[in-house]
Simulated scan of single mutants.
Amino acid sequence: MPESKPRRRPTKGPAQTSSSKAQQPNAAWFLPVMVTLMLVGLFWIITYYISDGKFPIPNINNWNIGIGFAIALAGFMMTTRWRS
Rank of each mutant, 00 (worst) to 15 (best):
A15V: 11
T79N: 12
G41R: 01
Q24M: 10
P10F: 08
R8C: 09
I45Q: 04
W82N: 05
Q16S: 11
W63M: 10
P58V: 05
W63E: 06
L31F: 10
S84D: 10
T36Y: 05
M77L: 15
N62K: 11
V33F: 12
A72S: 14
P14N: 09
W44M: 04
W44R: 03
N61L: 10
L37Y: 02
I46R: 01
S19V: 13
I57A: 05
L73Q: 09
R81C: 07
G66P: 00
F69I: 15
T80L: 10
N61H: 14
K5H: 14
D52P: 00
A28S: 12
L37P: 04
R83I: 08
M77I: 14
R8N: 12
P2A: 14
L39M: 15
K54G: 04
A27D: 09
A70V: 08
G75F: 00
L42R: 02
S51I: 02
W63S: 05
N59Y: 08
L31G: 03
V35S: 03
S19I: 12
P6V: 01
A15L: 13
T36K: 04
L73E: 06
G75N: 02
Q24T: 09
S84Y: 08
S51V: 00
L31I: 06
S18C: 03
L73C: 08
S20M: 06
S19P: 00
M38E: 12
I57H: 03
N59R: 08
A72V: 00
I57M: 06
P56N: 04
P10C: 01
A15W: 10
F69P: 00
A74P: 04
K5A: 15
V35F: 04
M38P: 02
L73D: 05
R83D: 08
N64F: 01
N26D: 07
G75W: 00
N62S: 10
P25Q: 07
M77F: 03
G68F: 08
A28Q: 07
R83Y: 02
M78F: 06
W82L: 15
K21V: 11
N62W: 12
W29N: 12
G75I: 00
T17H: 04
G13D: 15
N26L: 04
L31N: 07
R8G: 14
N59T: 09
V33S: 13
A22W: 00
R7N: 06
L73K: 07
P14G: 13
A22K: 14
F76P: 04
R9S: 14
P56F: 01
W63H: 07
